[in-house]
Design a protein around this nucleic acid. Structure first.
Lengths: 170, 170
DNA sequence: AATAATTTATTTATTAATAAATAAATCATT
DNA sequence: AATGATTTATTTATTAATAAATAAATTATT
């Protein structure tokens, strides 16, 4: 028998993939449970409800994104590019988490929306701070542009439309 | 009963708002029907299923976006800005349609995803063409950036996070 | 013009499926 | 035996979709 906390992690691990692939509404707790190797009602032993499971998964993903961005260090003229690399790095290592976070705004459940809102606010704020601290001319504008590109990358992935992405560099 | 009125249009008119507000899955056909002043099963008289209703609504929205962009005319150094204005113009006049199209990628239904994919491809292609024709230096890159900003505006609206948007101009 | 025939518009009633959530029971471990 | 881990069985709720029925309008016929 596995320890309680391990099971919880296990469920969340599988939930990321299911939520990312099917979206919040099409991802059933039964599917998550099956993937995690437990029964559907057992999921509710760890999470009050489906919303709470989703929010927990979002928390982990956002933490990773936040941490990764925090660790980036580069001179002003290289920062945007380096941040971009950091983003792509998470994209490769934890694609599902990125997909999840970047599409989470489309979930109309009030509890989730409020949660997601706060997370986006925090990430965006931290990017601006980073850009400002590095002395980038129009830090806020650069941050917005960076964020916008993140969304474009996500949509390009989701819809399998690589043409959406056309960079000079890389 | 009301004679010869275009019930189909009426249903679509109301569906836009409901889909935009609640998202595809939380928007029930019963809600759409109620808003349109008809019974729920009657919706299926005009649309084979919920997916087809959604795709029909998307078609209308995309057509409007496409048309609006087509009509934009401006010198190269003003084009991006003018296109941005055109986007905001639709945003004010048909907010729901923009919200719908820009969040439609988050719907995992294969039939819808394929439909949405095609529409995004067309819009994106038309923007590149426009930028290229105007002689903008890096047309593709500018188009991508323009598109990314569109997503950012949408997320900013949906999550009620105006801080996400920080432009120099306007 | 009046009436019968037919079509179009729309509703009521119902079904079948799905999914989240709860409660009770069982199994395992110390 | 007691406690924790996990399952089985069940409920409640929701929703898309179908089928059958009715009302209203239009067209054809006398």
């Amino acid at each position: 028998m596995v320890v309680r906390e391990d099971r919880k992690e296990q469920i969340m691990d599988k939930a990321v993939g299911i939520f990312a692939e099917l979206g919040y509404y099409k991802a059933t707790t039964a599917l998550v449970a099956k993937a995690a190797g437990v029964t559907q009602p057992y999921v509710f032993h760890f999470f009050k409800n489906k919303e709470e499971l989703f929010n927990a998964v979002i928390d982990r993903a956002v933490s990773r994104i936040y941490e990764t961005f925090s660790q980036v260090e580069a001179p002003a003229d290289q920062l945007t590019k380096t941040m971009g690399h950091a983003f792509m790095q998470i994209m490769y290592a934890h694609r599902d988490e990125i997909m999840l976070v970047m599409q989470s705004h489309a979930i109309s459940e009030p509890v989730i929306r409020e949660h997601v809102r706060e997370k986006h606010r925090i990430i965006h704020k931290s990017i601006i701070a980073k850009f400002e601290k590095a002395g980038i001319p129009n830090a806020e504008e650069a941050a917005s542009q960076f964020y916008g590109m993140g969304y474009l990358i996500t949509v390009s992935e989701v819809l399998d439309l690589p043409e959406l992405l056309c960079f000079k560099d890389q």
